[in-house]
């Protein structure tokens, strides 16, 4: 009799499920992150095993404390490994590597040939590229935090972030939250996301880089329809997609990015604006997460930082991925308003 009841309940359950859940299985945000992380690990291992016979390359280091030559492994050693031969200071402060004086290279990207190496931190004489890498990294980490910060029942679909524009005053991530159609974040919620960001950054995750084929990238971002639409576009030139992994979070970015997240110092997520799509675009609305951050070790007075945060609260007018024209009209209107 007992067995009957269980059978009955199972049948009922199955029927019930059949009605509510369609055939394809949905992954929660966390499960998707785990899956992507796993695939990234496997692919990285495969690529490392593919190197085969280890060849040596000569890396001429230029800079403090003195110039010298290192003999490193081709396609295995990274500038980060070179920095490990020097000092802890080099390992912690270097954000980007400069190869042969003109190519900016990620700290965790294997070197492929003989080259001269310079390490760049945030206080070099010409830090434009380092700043750009920093701004991109902040956007990427913002995406990672947003996917951590929400509860299980809120679906977070990352869309993209535009190229770094530091003069605009804020870094951006455009995120689709389909279960929250009408959300205006409170001060407390912004504060929580900021705390999440700080917590994540303090863990000091290395920012790993991997180039994968289009197919694998599509497989990784299967449940995110925005990313899987972007991937063929990105892979059009050489069939490769550049992925970055921060902690467990994997995201697409052209790079280069900085070395590790502990290099992000003071940070504030200042505002979340709603972007509405034009009638012909298939995405109706996105949330634009905005924030401002400074590298670790930069000491800025609280008043000066409050100026930056106040400015970062305004909607960043960087190109919207879903609606190109409304934004421009808005800015025109503002200009007209400013003129009048």
């Amino acid at each position: 009799m007992k067995r009957h009841i269980t059978c009955l309940s199972r049948i009922v359950m199955q029927n019930h499920h059949a009605k509510t859940i369609p055939n394809t299985r949905f992954l929660s945000t966390q499960e998707a992150t785990e899956r992507r992380n796993h695939l990234f690990t496997l692919e990285k291992k495969r690529q490392q095993e593919n190197v085969g016979r280890i060849e040596k390359i000569e890396v001429n280091y230029k800079g403090v404390p003195k110039d010298f030559t290192l003999v490193m492994n081709k396609d295995i050693s990274t500038p980060y490994d070179c920095a490990k031969h020097m000092s802890e200071w080099h390992v912690e402060s270097s954000a980007l590597a400069l190869l042969d004086g003109n190519v900016y290279w990620d700290m965790h990207r294997p070197l492929t040939e003989n080259c001269t190496l310079q390490l760049q931190n945030f206080t070099v004489a010409e830090p434009q590229q380092v700043n750009k890498a920093f701004w991109k990294t902040c956007s990427l980490v913002l995406g990672a935090c947003a996917s951590i910060a929400f509860k299980e029942n809120v679906t977070v679909k990352l869309h993209s972030f535009p190229g770094p524009d530091i003069r605009s005053g804020s870094f951006i991530y455009d995120i689709d939250l389909p279960t929250l159609p009408d959300w205006t974040p409170t001060h407390q919620e912004l504060y929580t996301i900021t705390a999440e960001f700080v917590k994540f950054a303090r863990q000091g995750h290395l920012i790993e880089r991997l180039e994968v084929g289009e197919e694998l990238a599509l497989e990784m971002f299967k449940e995110n329809e925005h990313k899987s639409k972007q991937i063929p576009n990105i892979a059009r030139t050489n069939g490769k997609v550049t992925l970055y992994r921060v902690g467990k979070h994997v995201d697409i970015s052209k790079g280069p990015l900085i070395s590790h997240t502990a290099q992000i110092g003071r940070v504030s997520i200042t505002s979340i604006h709603r972007l509405t799509g034009s009638s012909d675009s298939d995405i109706k609305q996105l949330y634009r997460f905005q924030g401002v951050a400074l590298p670790a070790g930069v000491i800025l007075d609280h008043f000066a930082f409050s100026i930056l945060t106040e400015r970062a609260k305004k909607l960043n007018l960087a190109r919207s991925p879903i609606n190109k024209f409304v934004e421009r009209q808005d800015s025109n209107k503002e200009n007209v308003a400013a003129r009048a």
Binding site: A125, P127, I166, G169, V292, L294, V298, I307, R311, A338
Partner: peptide, 20 residues
């Protein structure tokens, strides 16, 4: 150094304030 990130940010904020 005007190219440091904090100086770039402050400079942009100053410019915007002046424009307004």
């Amino acid at each position: 150094n005007k190219l440091l990130i904090q100086n770039v940010l402050l400079d942009a904020a100053k410019y915007e304030y002046r424009q307004s």
